[in-house]
Structure formats: structure tokens, C-alpha cells
Amino acid sequence: MTTSSATGDLPRAPGRSPAFLPTKAAWYRILSVVGLFVIWQIAALIPISPAFPTFTSTIVAFYEMVADGRMIFAYADTLKPLLIGVAISAGFGILLGISMGLNRLFQWFWEPIFVVMQAAPVAALIPLITYVYGLGLTAKVVAVVILAAPIIVLNSYKAVSNASPNLIQMCASFQGTRLQQIWKVIIPNAAPVMFAGLRLGIAGGFIGVILAELLITPTGVGDLITFHRSRADYAEMYAAVLSVMTFSALTVGLLERAEINFFRPEKKKGR
């Protein structure tokens, strides 16, 4: 297995520029958003499937769900296990990853198990979780952790073990102690990749929490999806799905911007 899968630093199309100015690229993007919605609307009016509501009715449903608070309560429910799970994964994942990067024995013991967890479809284990952790919050937190932790651990480990040998040598040439080397060179050097791991971990956690809500017990956004599907309220159901996709895209996008602002000054444009 080579590095790119675990580091998971997705190559990015230069689609999202930090500026809000309506550049040519921005017009294209607005156009593509509008275009997609028009296609959606037309496809629904044909209709291509009875279970395919129009864009407008989906948006109306979305507003109604936000207005009567259903959407907001659902997100409060969904975000709780997500945040707890990501916090746990980040806390122990980064610590474990750093120790793996610094200690050969740790690395030898832990790396293969996390590589397996990263590459294998661990989602298969979610039905088993209920037998141990019941149907409540804990089970969902565990679902988030098993999907979010491996990428966080592996990214932290890779980031630390790939720390620039030049900078480490530089630190040694100025008689830096091992602690100074770790604290002043290795960790800051690894921070961008570790943060990218966190971002990918959150994306994984999203998949986990939605899956848990669909498979274990319907709560939160998962409940909105299943409930409205069972009642054939397709506009509401689509609104819930659309909101999850948008919410996750916004979260991941914001984290990405934070990453560039705080950790990669060389990638910032302009100045």
C-alpha cells in the first residue's frame, strides 16, 4: 500500500478560490449550480420517476422543515454523536499517530491494524455494534469512531514519520534536544497533514453517523430520511438528503480554508 491512500490528501481542482469576487471562474460556478438545478427541475417535471420531486418542491420542503424546527432538532441529534466521536478519534488518534511516528515498536504494533481498518469496509461491523452498545448514543459514537479514527491515526503517523530530515538535521546542528526536535520541528512540520487527516476523519465520521442513523435506530437526519420515505413525502426526504450533502460540503470546505490559512501560508494566494 502506498502513501496516498492513507494520507488521503485529495488532489483538488482549483474550483474554490478564497476570494469572493465574482471572477470568471466564479461565474462559471454560479452557472453550473443554476444549471444543475434547472436540469433537476426539468427531469422531475417529465417525470423520470414518481419518486423524484422537483427542485422547487424540495426547497419549499426544506424551508418548512427549517421553519418548524424539525431540521434543527434533527441536526442537533445527528451532530452530537458526530462531534463526540470525532473528538475522541482526534484526541487518541493524533496522540497514537505521533507515538507511532516517533517509536518503531509502536509503529510496528499498530500500523498494520490501522492500514487494514482504513482499507477494509469496517461499515460491515455497524450491525454488530448494537449488540454491545445498544441502540443509543454510544453505539453511534462508536460507529463514528471506527470510520473516522483510522485516517486520523494514519495521517498523523505518516506526517510525523515523513518529517523533513533536513530540518531535523538542522535542529541537531544547533544542538536541539530530542524534546525540542519533536516540539519545535517535527510537530509543526507535521501539522498540515495531521489537520488534513482530521478533515478526512470528519468526512468519514459523517458517513458513519448517517449510516448508524439509518441502520441502528432512526434518529436525527437519518430519521427524517427514513420517516419521509416511508410516508412517500419525497420532497421532504430529498430535502433532508440535500441538506446533509450541503452541510458536509460546507464543513469540509471551511476546514480546508482553515487549513490553508493556518498551516500552509505558502499556498495562500495574493499578499
Binding site: 538542522m170 544547533f174 544542538q175 512540520n189 501539522a191
Partner: peptide, 29 residues
């Protein structure tokens, strides 16, 4: 401390300002 090294590829800390980079040896000390 009686020897100081100048690196071929500079070996500057990308996350630190020029001032912090220049004073890095003193910081470690």
C-alpha cells in the same frame, strides 16, 4: 556550539518568520 552549519537547501522552518528562523539556534539554546 563552536560549529554552525549552513545548509545547501537552506533548511528554514516554513512556518516561522525570518526573525524566528534566524534566532532559532538561540531559541534552542
Amino acid at each position: 556550539p563552536e560549529r554552525a552549519f549552513v545548509f545547501q537547501d537552506f533548511a528554514l522552518l516554513p512556518w516561522a518568520t525570518v526573525l524566528r528562523n534566524v534566532a532559532f539556534g538561540l531559541e534552542l539554546r
